[in-house]
Amino acid sequence: MKSIQASLWVEILKVRKSKIFWGTIILFMFISAMMGLLMFVQIHPGISGKLGMIGNKASMLRFGVPNWKNYLVLLMQGIAGVGLIGIGFVASWIFGREFSDHTVKDILAIPVSRSNIVYSKFIVVIIWSVILSFVYLAFGLLMGWLIGLPDWSGEIVIQYSCNYFVTTILILLLSTPVAFLASYSRGYLIPLGFVILTLLLANFIGMVGLGPYFPWAIPGLYGTPGVTADLQLHVSSYIILVCTCLIGLFGTVAFWRFADQN
């Protein structure tokens, strides 16, 4: 316990003092603001011309009637895509930077076990990701209130917020293979490429109707209401997701414990 407390304190310090942490928060606030802007254009179609290209894009996209319910669906779909990249980036950075900064060799022969170092890093991935997810939703709700979205309902907000956080958890489960790749490739470029590839594949595989069996498509499908029957998630979808998570987790722990650290 003392061991994991020490390594957790260390991991939190590293993140807290990094510019990247604050950069991701600002980025997620910005993306959330963009979602609000899209809804604002929906409410005021006449303004799209004044906003230039962003306005035109927004007016081309249709999210149904501009109200709180549709806005929350938009936020949820947003986190499925942005979250996959954002959380993937967080995991890549936390694990990969130890190798790219060559600091890993200093934490290999210390009284704290390597497993505890890995677990601490995963705990920090969770904390960081939950903060980003919370910032994204909170800022989104604030934007919704500022642009004056109609049909506010506390019940709907709670229901969709719960779904939103479940989507975040599903995405979080996918951070472990990224951590493994960051450790195995000893850096963060390959895992970042992997994250982008999985996002593209998730869209493609979703289109051919195999989304419920592809781990990286599952969070997006969970956040999409009214999907066709072939894209409905079932128990096996969640089993696949959990298995992917466990493979990534144990793979990362095993790599840190047993692989030669040259």
């Binding site: 003392k2 020490a6 390594s7 304190w9 260390v10 310090l13 590293k14 003092k17 990094s18 510019k19 900064d101 060559h102 600091t103 060799k105 200093d106 934490i107 022969a109 210390i110 009284p111 704290v112």
Partner: peptide
């Protein structure tokens, strides 16, 4: 055991004090 392997690297964004505080904690 205390060790230093090849070129030493430290966490670049952290100060000297913070880098050492990390090792104070990791060595309990």
């Amino acid at each position: 055991v205390g060790s230093l392997v090849e070129v030493p690297y430290s966490y670049p964004e952290l100060t000297v004090q913070e880098n050492l505080e990390i090792f104070r904690r990791l060595h309990f």
